[in-house]
Structures are given as C-alpha cells and as structure tokens.
Design a protein around this nucleic acid. Structure first.
Lengths: 241, 241
DNA sequence: CGCGGTCAGTAAACGGTGTTCACTACCGTT
DNA sequence: AACGGTAGTGAACACCGTTTACTGACCGCG
C-alpha cells in the first residue's frame, strides 16, 4: 500500500506512532496535554524532530482530527452493515445511537472534532465534509437514499425561501457522495431529502453535544430516554413506522 | 451596593478591569490569547498580582463565562420585553432569533460558554443552570408558561419511559425558576411542557452550534432560511400559528 | 566501491506561558 | 504611633511552541 522504499516505511511508522501517542494523551489528559514535547518525550526523540512530520502543533491536531474521524467511521460502518437493508428505519436509528454512544464514550475526541472553533486548530473554513464525520453521515444517508424511496418525495413541504438554498446544496452533496464512490441517481436527491438530512443531523448533533457538555438547562442525569424519544419523533416526521 | 469600605471598592474596580480586559482579549484574539501575563501587562501590574483575585487561569475563565452569560441575558431580556405579552409565539421566536444573532456575532464567547468541555475551564460538573444561559432560557420559558396556556397540556404525547425522568426535572425547574423570583403555578408545569422546553433548547442549540462551528455536513453559506424554517416547524409542533 | 545528496534527528536558544514564594509598602484600624 | 492585613513586586521554576544551525546515517548513482 504505502511506497516500499523502506525509508518511507519507517517514516510512515513513526508518523503512526506520533498520532497514536497524541490520541492517547488527548484521551487520558485532555487536549491541552497534547504537547509536542510530551509526544517527543514518549517517542524518545526531541520536540523539533516532530517538525519533520507536521508544520506545527495546529497541523498535528488537524491530523489527529482526521484520525479520529476515520476511527469513528470505522466504528459506525460495521454497525450499520449489521442491520438488514430492508429495515431502513432501524439502520438510521442504529447510526444515531452509535454516534451518541461513541460521543459519550469519547468525549474529548468528540469535543476536538465536533466542537472546536476552526481557529483553534487553524482549520481553513473551506473544509466542509472533507474527511470529517460529515462524510460518514452523508455516506449513510446516501446509501439509504439510493436503496430505498423511504423519504417523502415532493410531498414534503419545503418552505419556499429554502428551495433555492437547498438546490445549491444538492450539487455539493452529489459531489461529496460521488467522491466516496456512491452514485445516487439524480432524481432521488430531492430537495425534501436534503432538508431532512440537515434537520436530522442538526437534532442529532444538538442532543449529543448538549449531553456531552452537560449544557441542558437543568440537571439531566440520564438523557437516553430523551434521545430515544427524539429518534421516534424524527422517524415519524420522515414517515417511518 | 458593594461594601463601601473603599478598600473593597478599589478591589471591585480592578476586578471589573480584569474581567473587561479578559473579555477584550478573548473577543479580539481568541481564548488562547487570554493570558494572565497579557492581562497584567495591560493593567500595568504583574501576573502574580492576579492571583489576589483568582485562584488560577481556569478560575478566571470561569468568571469570564459568568460575565458573558450575564451579558447575554442582559441583551436578550429587553428584546423579549419589547414584544407584547399577547404574542407568545413572537416572543419565543424573538428569543431564538436573538440567541442565534448573538452567537453569530460573538462566536468566541459562544464557544467558551456553550462548547467548552467542562474540563477545559475545570468547571465542576454539578453546575447546571447556575448563572449560565440556561437560566435565561428557563426564565423566558417560565414567563411564557406562567402567563399563557399555549403549550398543549396532557394531550401532548410524552413517551411513557420519559415520564419518570421528566417528573424528576420538574422540581429542578421549579426550584430554578423560584430562585429567579418567578413563581409558576404547579399545574402549569406539566410533563409535556418540560419535554417541549428540552426539545426546543436542543434544536436551537444544535442549529446555532452547527452554524457557528461550520459543521454542517456540506457547505451552507447562509443558514438563516434553514433556521427560520426550523422555527416555524417548532412552532407548529407546539401548536402556534 | 566510494561519493554526494537527502533527510531524520539533535542541541541550543528565544520568547512566551502558569504558578509559587519570599518580600515590600501601603492603608485602615486600634 | 504601632499593627495587621493585603495589593503588588521580583525572581525563580518548569513547562511550552518554534527556529536555527548542525550531525549523521542511509540510499542511489557513477
């Protein structure tokens, strides 16, 4: 897979080591503990050596983000795959529940990837679904759309002022999906579908972020029932069982 | 208001100065620029002097959070007050729009207060609506409930497994409201009401956070129509026009 | 074989950070 | 006039990211 020049093999090796170490530090002690010097110390090298691999600490953190996103995707995909294709509602539920479970189990990773202001990691604003979890979300939604006609088509009432906006997004979604190898027939990507995807993602994200950050307006010791009720309500909106 | 011993007056003065300076640094250069030494430099004192006022940088940041929350509350309250009491839907819309506008105009403050993992500011987990914006949200919702019976009462279908949870929150909400001087008759605080408040907050938060962080699954240049459509949809769920 | 370039890694240094500690000098009170 | 509390200082410690000039070892080429 990677170039075999052996030199590059070693390089890729330590690069993986760096990322793994950064991940470990992040998980165990928080993002402020992800320090060039700490990583170097643990790898038995000196801090400046890391600049052979990353331009800066921010750059490293950005790669850690991508690493985490990849892991999340790798965690979610098999879980969805385990649900039969002919149970689309259950598939969507599964990915939502899995995402919540992952976020609660990996709060620091979640924070870094999903709730870090772009400036913190110096992420260029022009970096939409690139590598990030959005891709996973799109993939799953894309599969769903391409294999079923579950979503209410034109009958779903998309507010008029939104139609122009949504039409613009469609191309973006199409391109994103195409980049991952999924081909969705044009006629399946209706405006209502895109609208639903956005709503779904916003609610899922909102609930999970609130839960991870403990920012409910009052103490909520166990938000799982709340989450489940959100799912069933969302499903009813879409037209699931 | 503050003790007049003049010594304490001076102290309160510089304390305000410190907070104001921290706010300015946060707004202009991001939270990483909020540095004890930078603050001290600007006040013409030395960094260790700040320890006379705050236990640590984290402690200072926590107070900045409270300061921001207070400001947010002060921004929102008059905006709501400007909407006649007999237009409850418009009142809710107003606070939601105002919150979104504030967040977009003050992304760094929003990030610090609403999307900082508790560990970052060393916030004790047991710090629910205390001083934070949750209180404002509760106040507004509380006023709404106590003055109108807009929300669908028992007819709203609260999923069975949730009823126990929600019942537990009710006391919490009651106490929080009472602490701010708002007395809501017990019978107005129905389970469905609490459920709605949570849903509303989760969706509002989710949309705004996504927008501030630019974490929509694809590029969304202008999320305002999306936001407005969310509002009208939420309103229809509650039974507004 | 040996020469030369590429490149991972080093050592030292710069300026910045949070935090601690011993210390001063003032201010209000007794 | 003496005292005690307290805001503020200065020096120091242990970190941090980043830059610079430097060392070797490895690899391919003649």
């Amino acid at each position: 897979m990677t170039e075999g020049t052996r030199r590059e093999k070693l390089r890729a090796d330590t690069e993986r080591e760096i990322l793994a170490c950064a991940r470990r530090l992040l998980v165990e002690d928080g993002s402020h503990a992800v320090t060039l010097r700490a990583i170097a110390r643990e790898l038995g090298i000196t801090a400046p050596a890391l600049y052979r691999y990353y331009d800066s600490r921010a750059d490293l953190l950005r790669h850690v983000c991508d690493d985490i996103s990849a892991d999340l995707a790798a965690t979610l995909t098999p879980q969805i795959a385990a649900v039969p294709l002919d149970q689309p509602a259950e598939r969507v539920f599964t990915v939502c529940r899995a995402f919540r479970r992952w976020a609660l189990a990996h709060p620091r990773e979640f924070t870094l990837v999903f709730a870090t202001s772009p400036e913190e990691t110096n992420t260029p604003v022009n970096r939409p679904a690139q590598d990030h979890f959005g891709r996973v979300f799109l993939e799953i939604a894309g599969q769903l759309l391409s294999e079923h006609k579950i979503f209410l088509s034109e009958s779903l009432d998309v507010p008029e002022p939104l139609r122009a906006e949504l039409a613009a997004y469609r191309d973006d979604v199409s391109a994103s999906l195409a980049a991952t190898g999924i081909r969705v027939p044009e006629e399946k990507l209706q405006l209502g579908t895109i609208y639903l995807m956005l709503q779904w993602w916003a609610r899922l994200y909102g609930h999970v972020a609130l839960e991870v950050f403990g920012r409910f307006p009052f103490a909520v010791p166990d938000a799982e029932p709340l989450f489940e009720s959100m799912l069933t309500e969302l499903a009813s909106v879409v037209g699931f069982s």
